[in-house]
Every structure is written in structure tokens, then in C-alpha cells.
Design a binder for these strands. Structure first.
Lengths: 358, 358
DNA sequence: CTGAAAGCGCTTACAG
DNA sequence: CTGAAAGCGCTTACAG
């Protein structure tokens, strides 16, 4: 037995000898141990079909035994692109961001890509230049964009120009707003909101107030449409609507206005949990008990939803799953250009919604 | 004027000609335009002192005009390390994580490094192997470790072995616990907690309950020591202590126990905001008003602190600044080995602390 | 199906 | 103070 290929059966096995040197294996080591050219090893790494099965198995065996993993920097240099996925966002919701990061990482696991986070100031001048520098210099393998930046057409055009694959996360409903081309993860905020609307009507509420979000954001538009649909299913409309901007303070102020009117609503829907929590504060200050005197609903199922008293009835989106899908589809060769992936929201009933006060 | 070096004064300026090709400049382009070797350009990039001032200025001028930025992958390949900083953590506090990321990015800006996030499961088996793979494969330029993983001696040993620079964020007080070597950002949780202890004693409270964190965590130990010091300054000790684990639920249960006793405390301190919020829930269910019937304090100044009613008196740490310092010191050549950088916490008085009930 | 040569864009080690 | 050669660890383009 002096077969150099099956050297493991010999004394002085070259693979064992190599391992004794305790050095990280390179493609050259694998090539020489397998007695093929480095190009062939490269083909195996990149799953080229034009490698004889026997050769492939031999090379893979050596790769496994020496623990070879191709250097992403060297590969990146030759490929003219890195193995880095950029995550671009300008969003104040910390739990949302962390969920998205976790999900994106879930989808990247085993792909050889890493996640580079890139919070930004969407409204700053020079925003696009800054993104251009980032994407070009890092030669990103792909970009995931979160709302609301994901609605910036200028950014999308830039990424197209830079020829970097990207995927957007959005609540945009292409039946309502002009569709945007390209890969996207679409949340149907409307679905759970309609359930929520039905829910409070079912509890007997008839005077229902709504704290709106900025309707330039698809999420705000879709959520409102969903809540309205839920009411409309029973012939109702909002008794009163105040504008908000998704912030706690704006929710507080909007609720104050509604609750200090003589015909105050018996239920208030916030377009997100933070504004709903602001409505809690207004109710607290006015001595209104939740849900006995006032029902409140939100959207997001943020951590705060289960930490305020009573716990908040809200609508949840599978954010982590959405992000996992985003990174999977972004990095998969099978993904069809322009594909959309849809996720539904769902109502979560907790303690803040109760029967209409007599 | 046919001076090739100051070609910009001629017709057919070579730099202008190059720019017309609209291709990203490489070190070779800069070298040929500056009529020096690429090695000299390399020296300028890397701020080698052994370059004649005149040559350096000329090269820098060309670099600026063609917008040359060295390719991090190529540089990384030659340097045998990347320009990536890893952020390793296993921490459920989303706002804390986001703050740390923002701060770390603040400190990295302009350094040419990017931030690769690496949440992990500290208690999973194979944790260290997974970190080893990550650090080795990416050839990280440095690692930032957040609590509580930052207390894992096995991890620190591994990073030492891998010879990657790292810096820890910790609440560990080296006067109390055995010191850990290496770069560290140290928060003095004790300081603000002592202020907080003084604060409630000053409000007249004498029966004070404490919801502890896991005292294996330096933060939990230090905070407790600080609160106790604040009381001790006035000859007081905790009337009752319940254990907790930093979770909302554990705070809720601990507070329930304290508040259902006949000699219930008039003030409860939670070792973090989440547990304090749990105490709110217990108080809410028992019909106790805050702060009229019960004073509550927390630690963190998490988002929830200003979203619950009344707003929570708490202690704040400059988390973002700490992280900025971490990445600055980690990547700076001037940083002395083993240096510590100290940050104090501070009391923030809000609506949840009031005079002791009569 | 496989390989030798050249190249990705930088730096190190060595000269001078 | 500056440069020509070799190399980092991969892949592309071309042959065969």
C-alpha cells in the first residue's frame, strides 16, 4: 500500500503529516495532497459540474480531513466582490432592528457570508454618497434594506447602478401603490389590522379613535386600511382620527386630544405600539382605566406590549422570519429576479381590549 | 510646460484622461500617474515615515484627484488580516445592543473598518468552536465583547490564542473581584446606584426592598453594592431582598412576594429596568399606586423607563459613548496594552419615586 | 474533465 | 528615501 491518494492507510500519511504542522490549509495544500491542480480544487469549492465524481469525492475528502476553508478575502479579491451582506436602515425601533439582524444572520448561516450593519441617517445630505462609498469599497455581495429607507427610489436606483444585488423589506401593497421593481419581502400589515378592527367592533365599541402614522409610509397606509376594513365590515368608520408619527410622544398627544373631548372614543387604535403606549399615558393621566374605561390597540408586538399594564392587544409580524427569508433569497442563485415573498400579520389579543363601557 | 508631474497644467492632463475612463483607481494607476513605484504609493497609504515630503504630497495629490481608496480585500489578503471588527454578544436587551452597535460604528468611522455583528448563544455547546471559526476565517482585525459574555474566561483565552486584539465591556470592579487582564471598558454601575440609594432614603423610605440580579454578573454585584452603600450612608440596610434574573417576569414575581407581606416595603429597587417594570405590574395588580403607595427604581434607562406610567426613576450608563471608546481604543495604535477606560453611571429622577407614604 | 499561466490589488522582504 | 521581485490565496481565460 503506497497509494499516495489513499495515504491514510500508510505509515507517514501525508495528510497526517500536514496536520502535524498545525497550519491553516490553503488551496495549494489541498491540491498537492489530492494530487490535482489547484484549479480543480477551486472547481470543487465552487461546485462546478465539470469535475469527475471520483475526483470531486477525493478532493472533498482531503478538504474535510485538513479542515480547509477557502479564505473569503482571497476569494473575494479574485471574484471582485466580498462575502459581506450590508444591512441598511434608519429605524428607531431597537427590537425590530435586532430581530431583523438575527433573522438575516439565520438566513446567512452556512453561506459563508457575514452581516455588516449600516445604520444611517436617511435624511442627511450626502446620504447616497455615503452609501455609494460603503457599497463600492466593500464590494458587497448584497444589500438588505429595511423600511422606511426601503422606499427611497434614489437609493434603489443607486444600487441598480452599482450593480449590487439587493432586497427590500416593505409593507407596500402593489395593488394600491405603484409597484417597485426588484426583490422584496412584503408584509401584509392589512390582514392582522382587519382582524383587530373586527375584534373591537365585536366587543361592542362604536366610537373608535385612530392615531395615524405618516401615510407616506406604506405601513401606516396599509395598517389604516386594514383597521378601516375591519370596521367597515360592520358598517362603521373611525369616529375620530389624529395624526401621529410613530413616536410615543405623538401617540400621547393624539390620545390626549381625543380623550378630552366630550364624545371621547371608547377605543383607540394606535398605528404602532409606541403610540399605543403614549395613549396609555394619556389615559393614566386622565384617570381612565384600561380596558374598563378605554380599550387600546397597537401594532408591532414590541417588548413594551407585554410590559405595560394591562398588556397590550396588538398585531404581530414575523419579523425575524422575514429577515431570514430576505438573506436566503438574496444569496440564493435560484431566486428569480423581481420575486416577492409575502408574510401575513396576525392579531394578538391581550389585556388592553375589553367590552365597551356601559 | 511638459512637466509630466504637474501635468494638470498641460493639455491632455493624464489625470483628467484617467478620470474620463471612469474606472476605479488602483494602486497601479496612482503609481503610474505619480510616476513612482507602487511600493511608494503603498508607503504613503500606510503613512510610512520614510517617504520624502515632496513625494508624499505628490502621491497624496494624485490619490485625492483620482479618488483612490485602497481595496480592503487586497490589503487584507496581503496583511493577513481583514478590516472587520467583530461584535460578540448574547444579551436580550435590544436597545442596549443597538446603542452599542451605534457607538462602535461611531468609533470606527473613518478608520476603514466595518462592523460585523455576531450575536451568539453563550451557553450552547460548541460556542467556543463557533467563535474560533468566525475569528479565524474572517481574520478579524479586532473583537469587541459585551456583557455577560465578556466575563467568559474561556473566550478570552481563546482570543488570546488566536492572537486577535480584543476589548471587553464590563461592570467588573477590579477592587472587588480578581482583575482580568486585557483592554477593557469599565462601567461604574456602583456610582449611580449609590446616588439612587441616597435618593430614596432622602424621600423618607425606611423599608426598602431589593430585586437582585444574578450576582455572578459583575453588574448585578456592583449595582447592589452601590444601592447598599446609599442606604448604609444613612445607617440603613435592605428590609427584604428577592432574587431575580434581569427578566421582566422575575421582577414581577419578586415584587409580588414582597408586596403581599404584611410589612411590605414602601420602596422597591430593581437591579434593572425590566425587573422594575415587572414590579409595576405587581403593584398594578395589587392596586398600589406609584409613587403614592410605592416607590420603584430601576437601572438602565431603557426605552420602557419613559413609556410606563409613571415614568421610572432609574440609573443611566453612557452606553453609546462606551462603545465608541471601545472601538476607538481597539483600533488605535496608541492604545496601551491592558488599559482600562472608566465610565460613571448617574441617577435620573423621574415620576416613580416619591415621598414615603404616611 | 483537467491544468499551467496570468491576474485580482495590495504588502513583505530584500536590495540599493 | 525608493524600487523590482515575489507572494498573500484565490479565480478567470485559455488550452487541451
Amino acid at each position: 500500500m503506497t497509494d499516495p491518494i489513499h495515504g491514510d492507510r500508510m505509515n507517514g500519511d501525508p495528510v497526517e503529516d500536514f496536520l502535524k504542522r498545525r497550519k491553516k490549509a490553503t488551496i495549494n495544500d489541498v491540491a498537492s495532497l489530492a494530487q490535482v491542480s489547484k484549479k480543480t480544487v477551486s472547481r470543487v469549492i465552487n461546485k462546478s459540474p465539470s469535475v469527475r465524481g471520483e475526483t470531486r469525492d477525493l478532493v472533498n475528502d482531503i478538504i474535510a480531513r485538513v479542515g480547509f476553508r477557502p479564505d473569503p478575502q482571497a476569494r473575494g479579491l479574485a471574484f471582485r466582490r466580498s462575502f459581506l451582506i450590508g444591512l441598511i436602515y434608519d429605524n428607531p425601533n431597537a427590537q425590530y432592528i435586532v430581530n431583523m439582524q438575527m433573522g438575516a444572520l439565520d438566513g446567512l448561516r452556512g453561506s459563508g457570508n457575514e452581516l455588516v450593519v449600516h445604520p444611517c441617517d436617511w435624511k442627511a445630505e450626502g446620504f447616497l454618497d455615503e452609501i455609494r462609498d460603503f457599497v463600492e469599497l466593500q464590494r458587497l455581495a448584497g444589500v438588505i434594506i429595511l423600511p422606511p429607507v426601503a422606499e427611497d427610489q434614489g437609493l434603489l436606483d443607486l444600487l441598480d447602478e452599482l450593480d449590487v444585488p439587493f432586497i427590500r423589506v416593505t409593507a407596500r401593497n402593489n395593488d394600491v401603490q405603484p409597484p417597485i421593481a426588484g426583490l422584496q419581502i412584503v408584509s401584509r400589515d392589512r390582514v392582522g389590522c382587519e382582524q383587530a378592527g373586527e375584534h373591537i367592533v365585536g366587543l361592542g365599541h362604536r366610537r373608535i379613535g385612530f392615531i395615524a402614522g405618516n401615510e407616506l409610509y406604506p405601513s401606516a397606509h396599509e395598517r389604516r386600511a386594514g383597521f378601516e376594513k375591519g370596521l367597515a365590515n360592520h358598517g362603521l368608520t373611525f369616529a375620530t382620527v389624529e395624526s401621529g408619527n410613530y413616536s410615543f410622544d405623538s401617540g400621547y398627544e393624539a390620545a390626549q386630544k381625543m380623550l378630552t373631548r366630550p364624545d371621547r372614543p371608547t377605543a383607540i387604535i394606535g398605528c404602532n405600539d409606541d403610540m399605543a403606549a403614549g395613549a396609555y399615558k394619556a389615559a393614566y393621566e386622565l384617570g381612565l382605566r384600561i380596558p374598563d374605561d378605554l380599550t387600546i390597540l397597537g401594532f408591532d408586538d414590541a417588548p413594551i406590549a407585554t410590559r405595560i399594564n394591562p398588556t397590550l392587544t396588538t398585531v404581530r409580524l414575523p419579523t425575524r422570519d422575514m429577515a431570514r427569508m430576505a438573506s436566503e433569497k438574496l444569496t440564493s442563485a435560484e431566486t428569480k429576479p423581481g420575486a416577492s415573498f409575502i408574510f401575513d400579520s396576525a392579531l394578538i389579543i391581550r389585556g388592553s381590549s375589553g367590552p365597551v363601557p356601559k
